[in-house]
């Protein structure tokens, strides 16, 4: 493992474009990656690690810049980044479901077992301490109480079902919670010269975004939404459509669960210069 470390560092630097591609070292690494399967697998592994570090915000500023300047140039890598981002989201959702399941009600067999153990304990105690007649009376009282509780519970369930149904009807009547953001230049919102303010309320919400771009060199853009701390909140590849002398990027962003704060859309790859569009998300 210790022997591999210099190789790993060299591969990482090479993949991030921090080694002169015409140098002997670059040539040597390039040849080894092609001729040596293990070395190639190591390069794949490091590539995956770089992508994860980028998504988790673990790259330092210079590596992050190198990633965006060099590593993400090939469309295949952009696709890989997008896929990794989606996979993380999928795994996080699965994890959350599992956690919820763990905190859910006790499985029936476990509760029955607990109940039986408890009954056996009580019965033994009663046999020792209370006359048999008192035991019978107590059982009758208990049965009656259980029957009463069951009826109460049924009434409660009916009440809840009715309330849920009313809630569904009320929610169905509400408009689709889609908010629009339209930019005609970097950081400038149509009809307003300050960054837009987006109110987030509970329930599903989508941002419908339209960006007008100039200086487009190719139609496929890499678009990401990130917080001011450069934590990525959303990432996608979007196709710019011609619109007169300019290009327009139209896309939807699911924003449910996004914390209030300052964000920006960063558009790259398709323009000669990276373009930033700032906006703000705030609580109601």
């Amino acid at each position: 493992m210790a022997e591999k470390q210099p190789d790993e560092t060299a591969i990482r630097e090479y993949l991030l474009g921090n080694i002169d591609p015409k140098s002997e070292l670059a040539e040597n690494l390039d040849e080894r990656m092609l001729m040596d399967r293990d070395f190639s697998a190591l390069a794949d592994h490091i590539e995956e690690e770089i992508i994860q570090d980028y998504l988790e915000g673990d790259l330092g500023p210079s590596d992050r810049a190198a990633m965006e300047r060099h590593f993400l140039r090939p469309p295949e890598r952009q696709k890989k980044l997008r896929r990794a981002y989606l996979l993380n989201r999928h795994l996080a959702a699965r994890g959350a479901e599992q956690e919820q399941f763990k905190r859910g009600p006790v499985p029936p067999w476990r509760s029955r077992l607990a109940l039986l153990t408890s009954y056996a304990g009580w019965a033994a105690a009663l046999l020792l301490m209370i006359p048999a007649s008192y035991l019978v009376n107590s059982q009758r009282a208990l049965q009656s109480e259980v029957a009463q509780k069951t009826r109460d519970l049924e009434r409660e369930r009916e009440h809840t079902a009715s309330a849920e149904s009313k809630l569904h009807i009320a929610l169905a009547g509400l408009p689709q919670p889609v908010a629009n953001l339209n930019f005609y230049g970097q950081g400038v919102v149509r009809g307003n010269r300050s960054p837009s303010t987006q109110q987030i309320v509970t329930g599903p919400r989508t941002l419908h975004v339209e960006l007008l771009l100039g200086g487009v060199t190719q139609p496929r853009c890499q678009t990401q939404m990130q917080s001011t701390a450069e934590k990525m909140a959303w990432f996608s590849q979007t196709q710019a459509s011609p619109s007169g002398r300019y290009f327009v990027l139209i896309f939807d962003v699911p924003v449910d669960g996004i914390a209030p704060g300052n964000y920006e859309f960063k558009v790259s790859r398709c323009t000669s210069l990276e373009q930033h569009f700032s906006f703000q998300v705030s609580s109601p």
Binding site: G17, P21, D30, M33, S40, P74
Partner: peptide, 12 residues
């Protein structure tokens, strides 16, 4: 392997 090689070099 060749495609991988060019991607690793940062080619588009």
């Amino acid at each position: 392997e060749m495609v991988k090689k060019f991607i690793r070099k940062g080619c588009t």
